[in-house]
Amino acid sequence: MTDEVTRDGLTVGAVADVAGVTVRTLHHWDEIGLARPSGRTPSGYRLYTQSDLDRIDRVLAYRESGLGLDTIRALLDDASPEVGAILREQRAQLAERIGELQRVDERLARMSQAHERGILLTDAEQIATFGNDWDPEQSQTARTLWGRTTQWAQFAERSASRSRADWQRLSDAMRDMQAALANAMDSGVEPGTQEAGELVERHRELFSTFFTLTRHMQVCLARMFEEDPGFASYYNGLTPGLASWFRQIVDEAARAHGIDPDTATWQ
């Protein structure tokens, strides 16, 4: 019976199908006086007339705009003389929400691009920011090697919010860091000393702006700087022997924190 159409109107099941809502919703609307059926069958089932359906259509339209049920009931029952003002206010709220969603969409777009590209600067901007020796393809190489790691995800998500000025500040900080390392080595700073330890910590903190770099991971990174021909060539180009010296000061700092650098893993 609840899914049938009668001569006197539609049953609650039929209205639910037409309106695209649940029977439970129609029962609730009836209980709170929002959209009540005009009739009943001899068995006591609700029956909705065309006028009832018109009211339900209005309820659905107002609800889709984001209005609450109490406000909708007031509008339909003409309890509020400021219908136009209420609707204008709702439009203003919707416009604000649309703006928020657009900003979220833009943020998601940048995050998606950053996961694919790493650094959201043009090739020319990268070279201008990081120097003439910088190869813009390095980001793609890094993604190929580490694109499925937590660290790449952190790097990309932080990259998404960085402007060119942000990258310039980080690039300058990295150059200063590398110059400090080269100067310390040339000045005879020994691994295991306080000065060497402070440089290691400075390096770890700077790298942690890209992704969280633990002391274990820093040992692995220093190992790679020494063993990888490309990294070793770059660091040794700053001052001969820097790649090996840097690994030594990182290893000694790790030992000072109870870490065996020979068994350290990327964790």
Rank of each mutant, 00 (worst) to 15 (best):
T2L: 15
D3F: 08
E4K: 09
E4Y: 00
V5W: 11
V5E: 15
T6H: 15
T6K: 14
T6G: 09
R7P: 13
R7Q: 15
D8K: 13
G9C: 03
L10R: 14
L10T: 00
V12D: 07
V12A: 07
G13K: 00
G13T: 02
V15L: 11
V15A: 11
V15E: 07
A16K: 06
D17M: 09
D17I: 12
D17L: 13
A19R: 12
A19M: 15
A19T: 07
V21L: 07
V21W: 06
T22M: 10
V23H: 07
T25M: 15
L26M: 09
L26V: 08
H28W: 08
I32H: 04
G33T: 01
G33N: 04
G33F: 01
A35V: 01
R36S: 14
R36I: 03
P37L: 03
G39S: 10
G39D: 14
R40G: 00
P42F: 07
P42C: 03
P42G: 09
S43C: 07
S43K: 12
S43W: 09
Y45C: 02
R46M: 09
L47V: 05
L47G: 04
Y48R: 07
Y48V: 03
T49G: 03
S51V: 01
D52Q: 05
L53D: 10
D54E: 14
I56G: 03
D57Y: 07
D57E: 13
V59K: 06
L60S: 06
A61N: 05
Y62L: 11
Y62C: 03
R63Y: 00
R63Q: 13
E64R: 12
L67P: 08
G68C: 08
L69F: 00
L69M: 06
D70K: 08
D70Q: 12
D70E: 12
T71P: 01
T71D: 12
I72H: 03
A74C: 05
A74W: 04
L75D: 04
L76E: 01
L76R: 05
D78C: 04
D78L: 05
A79M: 11
A79Q: 15
A79Y: 06
A79G: 14
A79I: 02
S80Y: 04
